[in-house]
Design a protein around this nucleic acid. Structure first.
Length: 365
RNA sequence: GCGCCUAUCGUCUAUCGGUUAGGACAUAGGGUUUUCAUCCCUAGAAGCGGGGUUCGACUCCCCGUAGGCGCG
């Protein structure tokens, strides 16, 4: 069996490739090349998916492949990354939403165009493996592939994979899904990759402290910061620099903690509220992808994560039109940010995920 | 114009005739983290100006200044 492995040069993907070679598979490493220099990001030695430091990561991946004795292919996808990830990312912020580029990148790039483009270039493989901490399982009775949490609860990355389809899952392997990070690091050392294991790991989105470099002057249009009573508390530096639930960096000092409650692009306004005022009883989730291919029974209960590392909340789902669902939380939730992925779980199983809709049942203040 | 009240970190404030003048918010640094946030830890940061009373004033008194309220 020929297995392609998405290699970033980090310890997880390196161990993944090593495990597969040890199992006797023919392995080929694939690495995306997405940096095109179109954004002014200085090379400060930071590490991230998108930035001038990509050359280092490509070298690390190539080096790891060489030491493993496997073929390594760099797949140029900068144009597609711009179109599929960066542009929608900018559009979302401009519309007052808070995008999750990693979820999109997995759906469209890593488990999509990367494989298409590699095959188009003549790289043949039967399976695609990554170092994600998640598991898949085939339900023979139903004939569907299931997506499950990784065993290492602290590292579980299934949230980021909630938009994968049966077609994608069919050919995917997650060799690290049953392991803990500690075990992976130990394997890396055992396999002679201590240097890789020791390397600082940073999987930031872009090589920058902030997203400001992705936006231009027109996005830095100041506007009012108001409270729920409509009083002006201060001025903001452009709506793209804020997200629902944010407290720091707003610069508004009152007696107590205030959080961004709402972003209003139509009036270029940021609305602040107390913690209690930023609680929501539910939300609408759009464009839901159900992993098994069909929705759970109407009225069923599941656990929903409103962002990565959210502890989750029990919720009831009611279908709306066009793959949208009304989600009612068992307890009001803090900072339900439009644009973030809402991912539904049943125990360890990922049922699916969609996008939190904007201005959901928000009575205007 | 007259009367009354108020004046403390960047902001909102606490306290006391002898204190390292406390807290919260904000800010900065750090931790956590494959998104954005949240959260946690640490740090810097103050007595409007001028007189006086007192062994000693941020605290009490007076003047000034500024703001608020009431009368006009």
């Amino acid at each position: 069996m020929t297995v392609a492995v998405g290699m970033s040069g980090g310890v997880d993907s390196t161990v993944t490739a090593w495990l597969l070679t040890r199992q006797g598979h023919e392995v080929v490493g694939l690495t995306m090349q997405i940096w095109d220099g179109s954004v002014a990001l200085p090379d400060e030695g930071r590490s991230g998916c998108y930035g001038p430091g990509e050359a280092r990561d490509l070298a690390f991946a190539r080096d790891a492949a060489q030491r493993l004795g496997i073929r390594h292919v760099i797949v140029p996808l900068a144009e597609a990354y711009n179109r599929c990830v960066l542009d929608p990312f900018r559009d979302a912020y401009r519309a007052g939403r808070t995008p999750n580029p990693c979820v999109v990148c997995n759906q469209r790039m890593k488990f999509g165009l990367l494989l298409e483009e590699a095959r188009r270039q003549g790289v043949a493989f039967d399976r695609f493996a990554t170092g994600h901490y998640a598991r898949t399982a085939f339900d023979a009775a139903l004939g569907v592939h299931r997506l499950l949490r990784g065993v290492d609860a602290a590292k579980d990355q299934s949230y980021f994979l909630a938009r994968l389809t049966q077609e994608q899952l069919r050919q995917v392997w997650f060799p690290l899904g049953g392991m803990t990070k500690d075990e992976v690091v130990r394997l890396a050392q055992e396999a002679g990759f201590s240097d890789v294991a020791a390397r600082e790991e940073s999987q930031d989105f872009i090589e920058s402290e902030s997203y400001a470099p992705l936006f231009d002057a027109a996005d830095n249009r100041p506007g009012p910061i108001i409270d729920t009573a409509g009083r002006e508390l201060g001025r903001h530096r452009g709506i793209v620099h804020y997200t629902v639930g944010q407290r720091q960096g707003v610069g508004v000092a009152t007696g107590g903690r205030l959080y961004v409650r709402e972003l209003r692009p139509e009036t270029n306004t940021v609305v602040m509220g107390t913690r209690a005022e930023v609680l929501r009883p539910g939300c609408r989730v759009e464009d839901v992808n159900w992993i098994r291919g069909n929705a759970p029974p109407v009225g069923s209960t599941c656990r929903v994560l409103l962002r990565y590392h959210h502890p989750g909340v029990d919720a009831q789902l009611q279908p709306l039109a066009n793959d949208a669902w009304q989600v009612s939380f068992a307890e009001p939730q803090f900072a339900v940010a439009p644009g973030q992925a809402a991912v539904f779980y049943d125990g360890d199983e990922v049922l699916g995920g969609g996008w939190i809709a904007g201005n959901h049942d928000t009575e205007r203040i």
